[in-house]
Nucleic acid binder design. Structure first.
Length: 894
RNA sequence: GGGAGUUUAGCUCAGCUGGUUCAGAGCAUCUGCCUUACAAGCAGAGGGUCACUGGUUCGAACCCAGUAACUCCCA
């Protein structure tokens, strides 16, 4: 018998995880049972477990374990994502340590190093998930860049290209001039920086204009009608200007409509255009439009058909298009041009200015918006059915509030830029001919066949002349296929697995990737299988620290999940995470949650120690029948609650229901009620019932706390278990009868006990001092049935049913019943009368409010009959109680 | 700039169909207990202008409108 006062999780965690694996309880193969499937949101292969993963995977594990215990064929597919950007950065860092730079390597050499890195360090996170207790079918582990999944990516790209959904186009990317690469938005760190705002004068070139009086009174930047003034933080880009834009409603500038102006220093003529996009309040109200070097300007330029003049080289120096300062770095050029403008009399003033600037996460270079040729996937056609699935409820978002967000996004969807300027990933299967034309094909040979058809003038073309697109596909272009590709649905569209497991049931993920990932999986499901990929999407919150900051490595505010597991046990961390994390709401993480979890499983542990300490005496008769029946009812009631909570994905509520059942009802109430005196034996009937109750409790605890429940499942308490008789595969108990009257009566009895304890506390009478209790029952509650319970928990020696008040005794009421506790010391009549008066006062106020309701004709006419009934009962109860209290008060006076 | 959300006890959050004098839980606080399962515990207690302003209703934390603060997503 294990007598340790506290449960030691570590040993049990290792033992049982190994046991589960060894007995293949996580393994799933299609059979006749109903499937229940979850595909894991594949974590980055470079990743280490963070708190977000903990929450996310705990929820998935709870769902999958519950499904398993409900007799379903539960299949949780794990895997990792190749994460182009993050992994490539890791590999570059590794190479740097070895003194190798990426640009000295060929693509295939680089890929060799990258795979080496992946094999060595990748997938640590999956090992960490095991520590959490994740019951994934590890035999099914997939990787988004493994051969089969890569083939699926290439095939789907070609499929979409053939459908006309893939095209090339120009797009503004975040350019890192030091790293000489495009970086994703996620890798751009925005910082507030002190800058200067330069006010630059552009000369109006056509002289024909009329002077309006407004020009003279306006305090705008327009000093004379010969000039307009533009405020900019980037004077070095004026050579790339394509227009000046003003708001058409801006009265200050009506005279400029249709005019042209000259760029200072280079005297190139550009038009003044009108667009409401320009804010009249900011700067001078005149905006220089530089399509090549600003995203908004680019869009404005597209709208107004402006030329795109790119004046920057890849390294951030000015190129020939700039005409002046060619070869200078952009920042040096900024300083120099300010001087030139000043000298030319075109610089009106310079102001200090604060604004947000993007920096490259990796090189800390100021990000330069840069136009480049990218590959795109058309979205509008695919978005429509994906939107309908959600609007029509075929796919449920939990919580529902995300439907609005989803719809808004899907109705305003932009084409997806699928190319990335990296090597680690699936290289785009496009092949360029020497003349710049291209074909899309799976292999060089197929590409060559197609290319031959394109070239009429070049019969010399060989396969070697084709150059494959350098860019790889966006990582999401492989993850959007995940629910299909993990079951080989592309390689073999009719295989047993995909037919059985797809569509999957629940997807558990973070709301920030609702569009990046979830929406696209829905599109892919429809496009490639004509079916939804999953039925429910449970969106978790973001794990934040106590200050509300997102937990991140760079802030260093995230605890190491493995340390937490070490400290509080996997079970403790699991329930700690779940406790205050309703779907879609952020979780303010604090270690005290885990402490709470640890205390919870320790309570369960100690309950087992108590039961184990009992000796059974077969000759004893069962005095606890009413308690046993009550707990049965209470247990069934809790089961219904828990089931209801799960049905609505209120997982933290389900946990709280379980917690209350176990801690309050089972430990504090049931066990205390049946507990025999010290070193006294217990009757066999009560003991056997208790064992059954405890086993059922282990079952409902298992999805939340798999390790301790499995450990106790195999305790001596339950005798010898067969090898495969494990909690993980036990079937959840079915509901039985709920005796509502019994539950109500017990609530009343519990109140009586609380009141007795309360009087002890307030009168400073020790819990050990034995008292007698007299009951003047005005209701029909059969207190005698509960005599043993009241005696035991109230430390009462005798329970007298009386028909008269007892003077001089401490008294209290539960509903309309009167209770008297004669004390050794005499009561202070003064404070007792104050107490009674206060209570009467409160009840009178209550009664008045009820009476005013009942006296309100409109209430009587409109309220539902059941509500009126309740009010009438409240009135009767209050009146009866006031009457009794007044009697007691007058008795006190005599 | 566009969209979504949040605001309830000191803290973190519940409150589901509007109906128990305007409310619950855990943590924290206070009081008393080392009572032979558990001090990681037991028995109690205190603590609230349900962000603000209006409206609808017999009745509002809940429905509607507006305001404020904060958060997230997209650009």
């Amino acid at each position: 018998m294990n007598i340790s006062k506290t449960y030691q999780p570590k040993e049990a965690e290792e033992k049982w995880y190994g046991y589960w694996l060894q007995h293949k309880f996580f393994k799933s193969v299609p059979d006749e049972r109903e499937p229940y499937t979850i595909v894991i949101p594949p974590p980055n292969v470079t990743g280490v477990l963070h708190m977000g993963h903990m929450l996310n995977n705990t929820i998935q594990d709870v769902l999958i374990r519950r499904a398993r215990m409900k007799g379903k064929n539960a299949c949780w597919v794990p895997g990792t994502d190749h994460a182009s950007i993050a992994t490539e950065a890791k590999v570059v860092a590794m190479l740097k340590e070895r003194g190798i730079t990426k640009k000295d390597l060929t693509r295939s050499e680089f890929m060799t190093y990258a795979w080496e890195w992946k094999e060595k360090y990748g997938g640590i996170i999956l090992e960490q998930l095991k520590k959490l207790g994740a019951s994934c079918d590890w035999d099914r582990t997939r990787f988004t860049m493994e051969d089969d999944l890569t083939e699926a990516v290439i095939d789907t790209f070609i499929h979409l290209y053939k459908k006309g959904l893939i095209y090339r186009g120009i797009r503004m990317v975040n350019w890192d001039p030091i790293g000489k690469t495009g970086v994703s938005d996620e890798e751009v760190i925005r910082k507030e920086v002190n800058q200067k705002l330069y006010y630059i004068r552009y000369k109006v070139s056509s002289i024909k204009y009329q002077v309006s009086s407004k020009d003279l009174t306006s305090d705008s930047g327009l000093r004379t009608s010969d000039f307009l003034t533009v405020a900019t933080t980037r004077p070095e880009t004026i050579m790339a200007d394509a227009a000046i834009c003003i708001n058409p409603n801006d009265e200050r500038y009506f005279h400029l409509h249709g005019k042209k102006v000259l760029i200072p220093l280079i005297n190139r003529e550009i038009p003044v255009i009108l667009d409401e996009y320009v804010s009249m309040d900011f700067g001078t109200g005149c905006l220089k439009v530089t399509p090549a070097h600003d995203l908004n300007d680019y869009e404005l330029g597209q709208k107004h058909n402006l030329p795109v003049i790119d004046i920057l080289n890849d390294d951030g120096t000015l190129n020939e298009n700039a005409k002046i300062l060619v070869g200078e770095d952009r920042f040096a050029a900024r300083k120099k041009i300010a001087v030139l403008l000043e000298t030319a009399g075109a610089l009106e003033k310079v102001e200090d200015y604060k604004s947000q600037i993007g920096f490259s996460e990796r090189t800390d270079a100021v990000i330069e918006p840069k136009l480049s040729m990218q590959w795109f996937c058309k979205m509008d056609e695919m978005a429509k059915p994906a939107l309908d699935y959600v609007l029509e409820g075929e796919i449920k978002l939990i919580p529902e509030k995300f439907i609005n967000t989803y719809r808004h996004w899907m109705e305003n969807i932009k084409d997806w830029c699928v190319s990335r300027q990296l090597w680690w990933g699936q290289q785009i299967p496009a092949w360029y001919l020497p003349d710049g034309q291209y074909v899309v094909a799976k292999t060089r040979e197929e590409a060559f066949e197609q290319a031959k058809l394109l070239t009429t003038h070049n019969s010399q073309l060989t396969t070697e002349d084709l150059v494959q697109e350098e860019d790889v596909l966006d990582t999401w272009f492989s993850s959007w296929l995940w629910p299909i590709s993990v079951f080989d649905g592309f390689k073999d569209p009719n295989n047993a697995d995909i037919n059985y497991y797809y569509p999957t049931n629940d997807l558990v993920t973070a709301p920030e990737i609702l569009f990046l990932w979830v929406a696209r999986m829905i599109m892919a499901g429809h496009e490639f299988r004509g079916e939804i990929p999953f039925k429910n999407v449970y969106l978790t919150g973001i794990v934040r620290d106590k200050l509300g900051r997102k937990m991140s490595k760079s802030l260093g505010n995230s605890p190491d999940p493995l340390d937490l597991i070490e400290k509080y046990g996997a079970d403790g961390v699991r329930v700690g995470m779940l406790r205050s994390s309703p779907a879609g709401n952020d979780l303010m993480f604090d270690e005290s949650h885990c402490e709470w979890g640890r205390n919870f499983f320790n309570k369960v542990w100690n309950a087992s120690r108590l039961i184990k300490g009992w000796t059974v005496d077969d000759t004893l008769k069962n005095n606890n029948q009413v308690v046993i029946e009550w707990f049965e009812s209470r247990f069934n009631e809790a089961l219904v609650e828990i089931e209801g909570n799960f049905a609505q994905y209120r997982i933290s509520e389900a946990l709280m229901s379980t917690y209350k059942l176990v801690w309050d009802n089972f430990c504090s109430e049931y066990l205390e009620m049946i507990k025999p005196g010290y070193q006294q034996p217990i009757d066999s009937e009560t003991y056997n019932c208790t064992i059954i109750f405890f086993e059922n409790i282990l079952k409902i605890l298992h999805p939340f706390m798999p390790f301790i429940s499995e450990e106790l499942w195999h305790d001596d308490l339950f005798g010898q278990r067969a090898e495969y008789d494990c909690c993980i595969v036990a079937q959840l108990p079915n509901y039985g009868q709920i005796n509502a009257q019994l539950l109500n009566e017990m609530e009343t009895v519990k109140q009586v006990i609380t009141q007795i304890r309360n009087i002890r506390n307030s009168k400073q009478i020790s819990q050990k001092e034995i008292l007698e209790l007299s009951v003047k029952a005005n209701s029909t509650v059969p207190y005698k049935n509960y005599e043993l319970i009241i005696k035991k928990l109230g430390n009462i020696s005798a329970l007298h049913m009386v028909s008269d008040k007892i003077s001089g005794a401490a008294s209290f009421m539960v509903w309309s019943d009167e209770f008297y506790l004669p004390l050794n010391e005499s009561l202070d009549p003064y404070s007792e009368s104050i107490r009674l008066q206060k209570e009467i006062e409160y009840l009178t106020g209550f009664l008045n409010s009820v009476n005013s309701k009942l006296g309100n004709e409109r209430f009587m006419n409109n309220a539902k009959p059941t509500i009126i009934e309740v009010e009438l009962k409240k009135k009767a109860d209050a009146e009866a109680k006031i009457k009794i209290l007044e009697e007691n008060l007058s008795a006190l006076a005599n």
